Amino acid sequence: MPSIPTRTRLATVSALTALGALASLGTASAADPALNGEWAPFTRCPVDAPAMLNADGFEKTPQCVVSTSASGTIKLGKTTVTTGRTNLQMGVVQNADGTSSVVAPASGALKAEPATVPGGLLGLMCPSDIFVITGICESLENSSLNKITATMESVGAPYAFDQTAGVLTDMPIVALPVRIHLENPLLGDNCYIGTAANPIVLRPENRNFPEFGMTFFQGDGTEDPAGEMSRINLTGATQNDSAFAVPGATGCGLNVGLINAAVNAKTGLPSAAGNNSVTLNDTRTHLTGLNAPGTVVPDAGKVLAENWHSAVE
Rank of each mutant, 00 (worst) to 15 (best):
T149A: 07
L304N: 03
D97E: 00
N146E: 03
V296E: 00
Y192S: 05
I130M: 01
L76M: 13
T6E: 14
P210E: 05
V178H: 01
A28L: 11
P127R: 05
E113K: 06
T79N: 10
C45K: 02
A51G: 11
Q89H: 05
V246N: 04
G120M: 06
A112E: 02
P293S: 13
S144R: 14
A272F: 03
G57I: 10
L19Q: 14
N208R: 09
L19C: 12
V201C: 07
T6F: 09
I148K: 02
V132M: 08
T151K: 14
H181Y: 05
L287H: 08
H309A: 13
K111A: 12
Q239A: 08
G289S: 13
N260Q: 03
G108C: 12
A70E: 14
V102E: 04
L186D: 05
G221T: 04
G289E: 15
G84K: 05
P177N: 05
T99A: 11
A243R: 07
L280H: 10
D32M: 11
N198F: 12
I259E: 00
V246W: 11
E38M: 14
P172K: 09
K78G: 08
E153Q: 15
G227M: 07
P46N: 04
V312N: 07
N291T: 13
P270I: 10
S3L: 12
E113C: 04
P247W: 09
T267C: 07
I74M: 10
A292I: 15
K111I: 11
I148S: 12
G166L: 03
N95W: 06
S107A: 15
D241K: 06
A40I: 02
G156F: 08
N260P: 13
M90Q: 07
T288V: 11
L304K: 02
G301W: 02
V102C: 06
G251T: 03
N87H: 12
P114D: 12
P62K: 09
V296I: 08
R207T: 15
G123A: 06
L269V: 04
A245Q: 08
V303T: 10
L304Y: 06
K78S: 14
D162S: 08
A249L: 04
G91N: 03
K75R: 10
A150C: 03
N255F: 00
V296T: 10
M90W: 00
E138G: 08
A115E: 00
S29D: 13
V174Y: 14
G248K: 04
G257R: 00
N142F: 13
T279V: 15
T151Y: 02
P204K: 12
V201I: 15
A175E: 09
L35Y: 05
V132P: 00
Q94K: 15
Q239V: 00
G20I: 05
G37Q: 05
K111D: 08
D129C: 01
K111N: 11
A157F: 11
W39H: 03
T215S: 06
L76D: 03
A30R: 14
A272T: 14
Q218M: 10
A28V: 13
A96T: 15
W308A: 04
L258D: 00
R284K: 13
K60S: 14
N260W: 00
V103Y: 02
S71G: 05
R284D: 13
V178S: 07
K78H: 06
Y159N: 12
R284A: 15
I133K: 01
T43M: 03
C64M: 09
N184S: 13
T80V: 09
N264R: 10
L269K: 01
G119I: 09
L287C: 06
T8H: 02
